[in-house]
């Protein structure tokens, strides 16, 4: 019963505030790949793994008044900020889910740029490949981002840390 909604509410409660839809998309994906039981279905899009299901579910949580979305006009695009509301806390109180601890990962990801999280999420998307193939695939699917070797190394390190 709304278990997937409750899991996301747990995330918003832990994260406190999330800035940017793209960042939100990548954070949930990365947590999923760390074994956390988020069930939103992801597909590979232009900017890395993306879940339409997550977009819609977050919209539902906003419309229900469980989270608040603030829209900021950045002249050629909008940026969105998400925070949990009192009603949201109340809902979570009633439907708290038994989930492993993930506040450490969330804190670490909040400190990273969305570009970096896009890289991490993309590398995790192809984690079935060998490390060399993985890097090659990242360059194939994202030639425009021009990720540097340092960034890739940092991402590999970050993934190891996340999954330890």
């Amino acid at each position: 019963m709304l278990t997937n909604h409750a899991k996301l509410m747990q995330f918003f409660s832990v994260a406190n505030e999330v800035t940017g839809r793209k960042k939100l998309q990548k954070m949930i994906y990365i947590l999923q790949k760390c074994g956390l039981p988020f069930e939103e279905k992801y597909e590979f899009h232009f900017y890395g793994p993306y879940s339409e299901e997550l977009t819609l579910r977050v919209e539902e949580l906003c419309n229900l008044g469980f989270i608040q979305e603030k829209k900021e006009d950045k002249s050629n695009y909008f940026q969105y900020h998400y925070t949990i509301t009192n009603d949201g806390e109340e809902f979570l109180h009633q439907f708290a889910m038994d989930m492993p601890e993930f506040s450490g990962q969330v804190e670490a990801m909040k400190g990273k740029s969305s570009r970096f999280l896009e890289l991490v999420a993309t590398m995790l998307y192809f984690d079935g490949l060998s490390p060399e193939e993985n890097v090659a695939k990242v360059h194939t699917v994202k030639p425009k981002q021009k990720y540097t070797d340092e960034e890739i190394q940092e991402a590999q390190f970050f993934i190891k840390w996340l999954r330890h």
């Binding site: 940017g20 793209k22 899009h45 232009f46 900017y47 993306y50 579910r57 695009y77």
Partner: peptide, 22 residues
Amino acid sequence: VVDSSSDLPYDFYRPGEEEERL
């Protein structure tokens, strides 16, 4: 049973945030 719109595999057109989705 509660059934929500996000339980469906269809979507609307949405412009989205920059670099979220094309």
